[in-house]
Design a protein around this nucleic acid. Structure first.
Length: 250
DNA sequence: ATGTCACAGTCCCTGTGA
């Protein structure tokens, strides 16, 4: 199975890039975040023409997650089943694998209520993932750089979101349940980023963060043959500010 | 010098979010 996660920063603005990427890379499953559209606007038919089923949990102006699959798509879940008002989580089963598409709240600033929402949201995700009865892949834009290696300038980020201890502890809690950050496991020392700010020429300066992550359960992780970021998707006309993160499983 | 992008509302600019 080849699976990717990609924050597309508006599927309305990005559909052509996404379709091109699918045709060139032929993932079996693609997890999308920040579709920024309602379910009524989601291009189910266009994905079907590419040979993919899809499910979407949309909101409108903000957020929105999707799962696109050519290997089956059943048992779709939208949200945590609690009172989260934002469309940031969905799950589905594809070829026997339970896949989860996550758009973790940004947090904005350490003293912002949105930061507390982010921590609560990650705790809700951990609760949902604590019970697993199938092979599991959790992917998405986590808006947390797991370690200083995943940040282009750790000194500049002191006091900022995305690198704080509570955020990193929340990721560590996920890992403690037996989920593996597969890109990092397969590349323990490498500097790898998945997001670059549109501003400041950040991409060309190498100012990035690795915040788009793929967690696999240990059995799947042992079968993973590759995991990488497709930086070419960050280049060219009208890119998202995120690049797809891919895992290939034997 | 936030060297940007996307959205919605109300227009072709401004505020918001990232």
């Amino acid at each position: 199975m080849k699976l990717a996660t990609w924050n597309v920063n508006s599927l309305t603005a990005r559909y052509a890039r996404v379709a091109q990427w699918i045709e060139a890379n032929e993932p079996d499953v693609l997890l999308l975040q920040e579709t920024k559209m309602t379910d009524a606007k989601f291009p189910f038919d266009a994905f079907a023409e590419l040979g993919y089923e899809s499910a979407h949990y949309g909101q409108g102006q903000w957020n929105g997650v999707a799962i696109v699959s050519r290997v089956g798509l059943v048992d779709v879940a939208r949200g945590f089943g609690d009172d989260d008002p934002e469309a940031r989580y969905m799950g589905a089963t594809c070829a026997g694998v339970r896949v989860h598409s996550c758009y973790v709240p940004n947090g904005r600033a350490l003293d912002d209520d949105h930061y507390l929402y982010k921590l609560r949201w990650l705790a809700s995700l951990a609760t949902l993932l604590a019970v697993r009865d199938a092979p599991t892949i959790v992917g998405g834009d986590f808006n947390v750089a797991p370690a200083d290696l995943d940040c282009y300038d750790p000194a500049a980020f002191v006091g900022a979101t995305h690198v704080s201890a509570p955020e990193r502890d929340a990721l560590a809690a996920l890992e403690a349940t037996g989920l593996v950050d597969i890109t990092r496991r397969l590349h323990p020392e490498e500097v790898i980023y998945s997001w670059w700010d549109y501003r400041h020429g950040a991409f060309h300066r190498g100012w990035g963060l690795r915040i788009d992550l793929l967690y696999l359960d240990e059995a799947l992780a042992q079968r993973a043959s590759a995991s990488y970021v497709d930086r070419t998707a960050r280049k060219g006309e009208k890119p998202s500010d995120h690049a797809p993160v891919v895992v290939e499983i034997a």
